[in-house]
């Protein structure tokens, strides 16, 4: 049977669900640039009939913004998926483990100190963001190696997250009025860019990180069982785990440095995709990246259209979705335990 009913929802079978997620995701990516305060006709865009102003809006603002939102969403979602498997914790995400807060602190520090440099084409903001992410995740990783329970690891992440959030607040306190506004707005998350610099800034890290994760998909299946069983079944956990943590740090650090710490995606997208395509990371990684990208893209499109000409920070919308999502998840997991068995 092509469809089965679960918890009142009609869900496609896992391999079909992946195709649906990819199709919806690509559809969102194709449609979103044409939506906004000023609607743009795709037909006119494909022909030569687009006025210069609209062409500039489409090619210099909308398309880069949509690509940035998609890549950022995919990276944040994938980061959550990997951390949940590595730490065997359903609540693990770049936020709950403090990685995003660490990256935010690194980037805020870069801005506040007035640095402006790049190394090998990589902006200083990204370098500081990635550095902040690494500084946060390394203690978590070392604690996890001391065989702490998933709850204890999560608690350590929450504490680190609070610590780095406090440091960001301290930086804000020391900043002038403009700096405070700038950091506050950036912390709410957003993709307000012109041109492709930001897209090109995060694309290499996101793509590299995603490739590293995908190439370890079979290992992630086992690591989600715990380090002991993964080792016993043939995974070199001591080598693979740091590699995956580095890949996540690269992705999250780069995304946060450009787009701010956008919350909730790293929790919501992996859980939704797990329910739809099952637990096999060989499918789940692709689904989560595409699903997370689409989720943030849709949120951003809502952010810039709902009360246009004003704009809602995208982080506000994703955070608003988190509460209802968890209520739904509690309900959905009841049937997931018995029915989503790919």
């Amino acid at each position: 049977m092509w469809f089965y009913c679960a918890g009142g929802l009609m869900i496609a079978k896992p391999h079909h669900a992946l195709l649906w997620i990819l199709a919806v995701s690509m559809g969102a990516l194709l449609v979103a640039p044409f939506l906004g305060m000023q609607s743009i006709s795709p037909v006119a865009a494909l022909g030569a009939g687009l006025p210069e102003t609209l062409a500039q809006i489409l090619y210099s603002i909308r398309i880069p913004r949509c690509l940035l939102a998609y890549l950022a969403g995919g990276a944040l979602a994938l980061g959550g998926l990997v951390l949940q498997a590595l730490f065997q914790n359903l609540l693990a995400s770049p936020f709950t483990l403090g990685v995003a807060s660490g990256a935010a602190f690194g980037t805020a520090l870069y801005f506040t100190l007035g640095f402006n440099f790049a190394i090998l084409g990589v902006g200083g903001g990204s370098i500081f963001g990635i550095g902040g992410a690494v500084v946060t995740i390394v203690p978590i990783f070392l604690l996890a190696r001391r065989r702490l329970s998933p709850t204890e690891v999560l608690l350590a992440g929450v504490v680190l997250s609070m610590f780095f959030s406090s440091l960001v607040m301290f930086i804000q306190y020391l900043s002038d009025y403009t700096g405070i506004l700038r950091i506050t707005r950036w912390l709410m998350g957003g993709f307000d860019v012109v041109g492709y610099q930001a897209v090109l800034g995060i694309a290499p890290f996101t793509i590299l990180g995603a490739l590293v994760v995908q190439s370890n998909s079979a290992r992630l299946n086992l690591m989600a069982l715990g380090d002991d069983l993964a080792t016993a079944r043939g995974v070199n956990v001591r080598r693979v785990k740091p590699l995956l943590i580095l890949a996540v740090s690269l992705m999250i650090g780069a995304v946060v440095s450009f787009c701010g710490p956008i919350s909730s995606v790293g929790i919501m997208a992996p859980h939704i995709c797990r329910l739809l395509v099952g637990l096999d990371h060989r499918r789940l990684i692709v689904a989560t990246f595409a699903g997370g990208g689409a989720l943030v893209l849709v949120c951003d499109t809502l952010a810039r259209t709902v009360i246009a000409p004003y704009e809602i920070p995208v982080g506000v919308i994703t955070a608003l979705l988190e509460g209802p999502f968890f209520l739904w998840l509690l309900y959905a997991r009841r049937w997931a335990r018995t029915e989503v068995l790919a």
Binding site: Q88, N89, L90, P150, A218, R219, N221, L222, A224, L225, G226, D228, L229, A232, R233, G234, V235, R274, L279, D280, R333, A336, R337, V340, L341, A342
Partner: peptide, 24 residues
Amino acid sequence: YAPQRFAPIFSYSVRQFVELGTFS
């Protein structure tokens, strides 16, 4: 290797779990 205890976090089916033993 069969461990003493195992508390799965994710909803693996029995068949899925056994299949994971084919990684090696």
